[in-house]
């Protein structure tokens, strides 16, 4: 990588972080808007949805974090084969340090043994980078910032689960997902979006459930059974009356996204990740020179 490419990539990465932190993707905002219309005038639910919509507008205008918990920093990237990946990792970390100084990210990475905040969002396991080389000469950088409140209400079930009455079948899966919604109540900053993985092991299941958040709210699952379950879970969850922030109301979930991985015969996991309404996800394609060519959401 020559100096120009390094500088451009660094600047583009900082811009991706800024935009992710300050601007809600359109597909999410439209979904929130339609939820707001459903809530009753004068209710706490409507009050919360109005504040949420105001917040989205102010954050974008001021280029400041939508939510002060700028979360776990998760990158999903593709890069040209010939790229020096070690150097690319360094550039990503450098961009995170710059973005933290500019206030796009809060100082959010804490040493689990000493309790000390690293102050720059860098440390073991921070940031998370999922990276794959590809044959194209462009870079694709997707970023998700996932806050702690919603991360804490994620759940993993091992089927059968007698507590929720779930057997080792798709009906059992659906019961687990709805149980997770009930347990989350308003603690995950609803209305929420669910990412679910059926199968895999404990590690891959959670990772795949999070990757579901890279899908647009409006897309439809290619697998007809999963598409049906996605609709059914969202519809049923919205009859529970938990509502925005758990204040009671009609909008509990905006969407559910489900995938499946193979499992070993003995294991049958259902991994559920919850994303708050402040769904910070963005992505860009960068030219071989490292300049942003196109936004992905």
């Amino acid at each position: 990588m020559n100096k120009t490419l390094q500088k451009n990539l660094h600047d583009s990465l900082v811009e991706v972080i800024r935009k992710t932190s300050a601007e809600l993707p359109n597909d999410v905002f439209e979904s929130i808007e339609s939820g707001r219309k459903q809530e009753q005038e004068g209710s706490s639910a409507k009050y919360a949805m109005n504040i949420i919509c105001d917040n989205v507008e102010i954050a974008k205008r001021k280029s400041q974090p939508l939510c002060q918990d700028t979360g776990t920093v998760l990158f999903y990237i593709h890069f040209p084969m010939k790229t020096d990946y070690e150097l690319l990792q360094k550039l990503i970390k450098k961009a995170i340090v710059s973005a933290t100084k500019k206030g796009y990210l809060r100082q959010n990475s804490v040493d689990s043994i000493t309790g000390k905040n690293s102050g720059n969002n860098i440390g073991p396991g921070a940031p998370v980078i999922h990276a794959e080389p590809w044959k194209k000469d462009t870079f694709e950088i997707k970023l998700m910032l996932k806050g702690g409140g919603c991360e804490n209400v994620g759940a993993q079930y091992s089927l059968p689960d007698s507590r929720v009455g779930a057997g080792r079948d798709l009906k059992g899966v659906e019961k687990c997902i709805l149980d997770a919604v009930q347990n989350a109540q308003g603690k995950g900053c609803g209305p929420g979006i669910l990412g679910v993985c059926i199968g895999g092991d404990r590690g891959t299941g959670y990772a795949a459930s999070k990757e579901q958040f890279l899908r647009k709210i409006t897309d439809k699952n290619k697998n007809p059974e999963l598409a049906k379950m996605e609709e059914s879970v969202t519809r049923e969850a919205n009859t529970l009356g938990i509502g925005p922030m758990g204040f009671g109301g009609k909008t509990t979930l905006l969407a559910t996204k489900i995938t499946a991985l193979n499992r070993v015969p003995a294991s049958f996991f259902v991994s559920v990740s919850y994303m708050c309404w402040a769904f910070r996800r963005q992505g860009a394609v960068m030219s071989p020179k490292g300049e942003i060519k196109k936004w992905l959401y």
Binding site: G167, E174, Q182, Q185, E236, L240, G241, G246, G248
Partner: peptide, 23 residues
Amino acid sequence: SLHKVVEAESAEKLKSVVEKIGK
């Protein structure tokens, strides 16, 4: 506590949803 009320009511509703899904 609003939280107590919403949680109890949604738990009741969940029961009937789970019944509807069936075995």
